[in-house]
Design a binder for these strands. Structure first.
Lengths: 339, 339
DNA sequence: TATGAACACGAAAACGTTGTAGTGACATTA
DNA sequence: TAATGTCACTACAACGTTTTCGTGTTCATA
């Protein structure tokens, strides 16, 4: 790569000092009109742009915010990033994305390379590995140093920082409620392992709705799937219950779509024999047949809110107390539950 | 945010010079064992980490690569980023993602803020707005300065730089060929406006396959959709042809899924009355019913290749000639074309 | 004829780091 | 005793920028 032109080189060219060049380019009237114009023309010709590293170092500000997400190939996370990007850009910030790939170690490593001057603040959704390990030292370090930090979606309540979460309990509740309203009696729940907080919270909502309707939750109808290769096999077990469920509530779109596929293979009519409902963030729900009723999560909004909280914290270190924003969900009713 | 600890502060604490501290922390044996240990303990306690901005400025290297994509909420682009991230990380680089939102202006702006010292190299997929405007000055500037640049997917042949593309012609060809093989005679093509190169190239492949089979391409069967709100209406026109097509080849997953939905509504049996085939990068194809046969694009690989080319160029400015990698596609045959 | 603006520029510090080239103090060698 | 070495440390430049505080000239004013 060619060497970029610097103030120093321009100064040498004109036999003046660096300060003079800097001022000339900034249209300072300390510099005579004639020299100013010559310098500007020259700089323009060589396409001079101030080196941002130097500026960042001087101003002790990078205008970059870091984002660490578990994976990017996930519609929900992309929408969040989109929201972050849009808001951040508006405010003059750039976004640096890193992936933890759900791994504790990568999360730690990412934080360690990011939080050393490269970024002004950090937005994170906690990796599965970290939740499993239940080790949050790397976040506590940041918090101890008052480093601007916002957690979203996968958060940990013990950490003292701003947070943005989906109303997972509410989502689970209204999903189950809807299934009950259409007359379902035996609702199977497809959820994740317990340490995944969002799955756990959605289950809480489901349980609440059931109790509210005077129904007991039969643990046989709760399937805690692990994200392995054999999702099909794991979900098939739903249909081996003594009394088949008449509705399935899945905590994500994929589980729901697979369940529906299996149900159809086994000859169930949807929604008549069995209703299916998922949480969504992607496009699958719209294109299955029948299209899936689902709890939609507003990822874009979540991203925007996260960026807003972060930038507020960066710019006005003011407010000492931390905010916890809750993004509510919508129930998008499609054919899979219309009966 | 609390002030981070610096070499200077440590030096002041011990009444020694900055260099001494720097060397002590680097285990230099120029420094006596005793002092070295004390300094290291102190630095450790205060969690000293060298400021990366300072290092980047000094070393004239950021180890960050910039990526500009048209949009992130698009499975294909996320997989590419994933590939870039993985490869870059392996090589010790971080990734900074920016979105052009398909806009020429934002693309220009992004390049201008990135290519000023913040990044060592840039990977871009050209915005639709830029293709429409046919204005590539911002890239030419970079190339003129020998700035490491890799274009992927949406490229422009006139630009002298490394490129990674999908074999769109080949994909279009094998898609059409497959439809012909299963006995289709009238294949409708759902593609994009001409200035979108990937759409245009896939059409070339389609045309080639048709000619190869001794068939003329009837332009009435070619639908150039624009990405507006009324995709449904636009695609419905396919079914208003005098002689209905017996196969549909769509240049992306959404077009294909919508076409299939409409076809089913109109009472067509898939694949018997009409076969449907799309290009995919996402999960929709798997969960439609019937599942969609599609040309799969290896986004992850594309990302890896792009990062590889870029980092090679950054590190060994060597090779003067530019590479053009072609990632070939796979045809994943599902139910929508099995007859 | 001093005084003091106005003008047009330069010096230097600061941001945080690293590496090269000193520099004293002491010990060893011829 | 003088030259040489070693040890343990410091000074300084460099990366590129901005900004505050000079400083020397010219010109007008009292």
């Amino acid at each position: 790569m060619k060497q970029r032109i610097t103030l120093k080189k321009i100064a040498r060219e004109f036999g003046v000092s660096i300060s003079t060049v800097s001022k000339a380019l900034k249209n300072s009237n300390e510099i005579s009109g004639e020299l100013r114009d010559k310098i500007k023309a020259f700089a323009d010709y060589y396409n001079y742009k101030p080196n941002s590293l130097a500026l960042q170092l001087r101003n002790q500000k990078t205008s970059v915010i870091g984002v660490i997400i578990p994976e990017i190939v996930h519609h929900f996370f992309s929408t969040v990033i989109d929201g972050i990007e849009v808001y951040a850009n508006e405010k003059g910030y750039n976004v640096m994305v890193c992936l933890s790939n759900e791994s504790f170690e990568k999360e730690v490593a990412n934080i360690s390379v990011l939080a050393n001057g490269t970024i002004d603040g950090l937005i994170v959704s906690i990796a599965r590995g970290t939740q499993k390990k239940d080790n949050y030292h790397h976040f506590e370090e940041l918090i101890k140093e008052d480093f601007p930090l916002v957690l979203f979606d996968r958060v940990n309540d013990a950490l003292k920082c701003d947070k943005v979460i989906i109303d997972d309990i509410g989502g689970g509740y209204s999903a189950a409620e809807h299934l009950l309203e259409i007359g379902s009696k035996r609702i199977a729940l497809l959820t994740t392992q317990d340490f995944i907080t969002v799955g756990a919270l959605r289950k809480v909502g489901y349980r609440k709705a059931m109790q509210n309707a005077g129904l007991d939750v039969d643990e046989d109808y709760v399937f805690k799937l692990d994200d392995a290769e054999d999702l099909y096999e794991q979900i098939e077990k739903v249909f081996e219950l003594e009394q088949a469920p008449d509705a399935i509530l899945a905590v994500n779109e994929i589980y729901a779509a697979i369940a529906m596929k299996i149900a159809k293979e086994k000859g169930y009519k949807i929604p008549d024999d069995i209703a299916v409902l998922g949480f969504t963030s992607g496009l699958i729900s719209e294109f299955t047949s029948p299209p899936l009723t689902s709890v939609v999560q507003h990822g874009f909004l979540m991203g925007q809110k996260s960026a807003e909280l972060l930038i507020n914290r960066i710019e006005h270190t003011a407010g000492k107390e931390y905010h916890k924003e809750v993004i509510s969900t919508n129930l998008k009713i499609r054919e899979s539950t219309k009966r």
